[in-house]
C-alpha cells in the first residue's frame, strides 16, 4: 500500500512539472511580441478610432465627447471656393491633386530615365548615384531652407540670372499664390527622384542578362529593347515606386512649411497642413480630425490592397 502511495506522489509532480514549464516556454515568444502588438493596437488602431470619434463631435480647442453627427464633414465639403472666405480645404485638396499627380509622374519618369542612363555602363556611376540620392537623407526642413533661398526672386536664381545679364528673366512662383504649389513639386521631385532612380536601377540590374542578349539577337534596337522588354519587366517596381510616392505625397507636411510657410494666404497648403493648422492653431479640432480621417481613408484605399497582395503571395 505505502509503496503505491509513494509512486503516486512521485508521479504527479514529474508529470505536471514539464508541462507547466513547456507551457511557459510555448508562451514566451508570444509574451515577447505582446508589448509591441499591444502598443500597435492602442496607439495606432485605438488612436485612429479616437480620431474618427472626435471627427463626429463638436470639439473646438479641447476634445469634446458630445456626438454632433457629421457636422465637421459637412463643413469640409459644403465650404467651397465661392463661400467667403474661400475654402482652405478645397485649396488643400486641389493642391493635393496637382502636387500628387505631378510629383508622382515626374519622379517616376525622371527616376526611370536616370536609371536607364546610368545602366549604360557609365564610368563614374559610383560617384553619380550617391549624388542623385543624397537629398533623401536630408530633412525636409533643411531642403526647404535651401530651396526657399534658391527660388527667392530677390536672392536666388532670378537675381543670379539678372547679374549674368538676363535681366528680363522673371521667376516668382514662390510668392505667387497660383504657382506656389509648383515650387513644392520642384523641391519634392528633387528630394525623392534619386531614390526612385535607385529603385529602378536595382530592378534593371535584376533583369536576366540572357533575356537582353536574346532580344538583341532578335534584332531589337536599344529603344525597342527598353520599350518592349525592359519596361514591361519593371512593372513590379513601378507599383512599389507608386506606393512609396503616393504615401510620401499624402504625408508631405514639412516641405510646405519649410519652403513656403504655407504660401500666401495658405495657398500652398496640403491636407496635412490643413489638419495641423485647424487642430492646433485655429481650435477647430473636429474639422481637423475629419480632415485626418479623409487622409487616412485615401491611404487605406491605396495601401491595403497592396499589402494584402504582398503578404498573400509570400507563403506560396
Amino acid at each position: 500500500m505505502s509503496s503505491v502511495a509513494t509512486t503516486q506522489i512521485k508521479l504527479t509532480p514529474e508529470r505536471s512539472r514539464p508541462s507547466v514549464r513547456s507551457r511557459l516556454q510555448d508562451a514566451l515568444p508570444k509574451l515577447v511580441l505582446a508589448p509591441s502588438f499591444a502598443i500597435t493596437i492602442v496607439f495606432v488602431y485605438g488612436f485612429i478610432l479616437w480620431t474618427i470619434y472626435l471627427s463626429f463631435t463638436n470639439s473646438k480647442t479641447f476634445p469634446s465627447y458630445v456626438i454632433t453627427g457629421s457636422r465637421a464633414y459637412q463643413r469640409l465639403w459644403g465650404w467651397t471656393f465661392d463661400t467667403d472666405p474661400p475654402s482652405s480645404w478645397y485649396t488643400s485638396i486641389t493642391n493635393m491633386g496637382i502636387f500628387g499627380f505631378l510629383y508622382i509622374a515626374i519622379c517616376l519618369a525622371l527616376g526611370l530615365f536616370l536609371a536607364i542612363l546610368l545602366d549604360q555602363k557609365i564610368r563614374g556611376e559610383g560617384v553619380l548615384r550617391p549624388i542623385y540620392l543624397y537629398p533623401m537623407a536630408l530633412s525636409f526642413i533643411v531642403t526647404g531652407v535651401a530651396w526657399k533661398w534658391f527660388l527667392d526672386p530677390g536672392l536666388g536664381l532670378e537675381q543670379t540670372l539678372h547679374q549674368w545679364g538676363w535681366t528680363s528673366f522673371h521667376f516668382d512662383w514662390i510668392k505667387n499664390k497660383d504657382f506656389v504649389i509648383y515650387t513644392v513639386v520642384i523641391a519634392g521631385v528633387w528630394q525623392a527622384s534619386g531614390f526612385i532612380m535607385a529603385m529602378f536601377l536595382a530592378g534593371l540590374r535584376g533583369i536576366d542578362g540572357e533575356i537582353m542578349k536574346a532580344a538583341q539577337i532578335d534584332g531589337a534596337t536599344t529603344f525597342q529593347l527598353y520599350r518592349r522588354i525592359v519596361i514591361p519587366l519593371l512593372r513590379p517596381i513601378f507599383l512599389s515606386a507608386f506606393i512609396v510616392l503616393a504615401h510620401l505625397a499624402i504625408k508631405s507636411y514639412d516641405l510646405v512649411v519649410a519652403l513656403t510657410s504655407g504660401g500666401p494666404g495658405g495657398s500652398a497648403w496640403l491636407p496635412s497642413n490643413f489638419m495641423y493648422e485647424y487642430t492646433f492653431k485655429r481650435n477647430e479640432m473636429a474639422v481637423g480630425s475629419a480632415s485626418a480621417v479623409i487622409m487616412l481613408m485615401t491611404i487605406v484605399a491605396i495601401i491595403v490592397p497592396y499589402l494584402y497582395s504582398e503578404l498573400r503571395e509570400k507563403p506560396r
Binding site: R15, P18, S19, R21, S22
Partner: peptide, 9 residues
C-alpha cells in the same frame, strides 16, 4: 517517455 520534454532534455 520523452514526448513532453524539451529537445535539450
Amino acid at each position: 517517455a520523452i514526448n513532453d520534454l524539451h529537445p535539450s532534455k
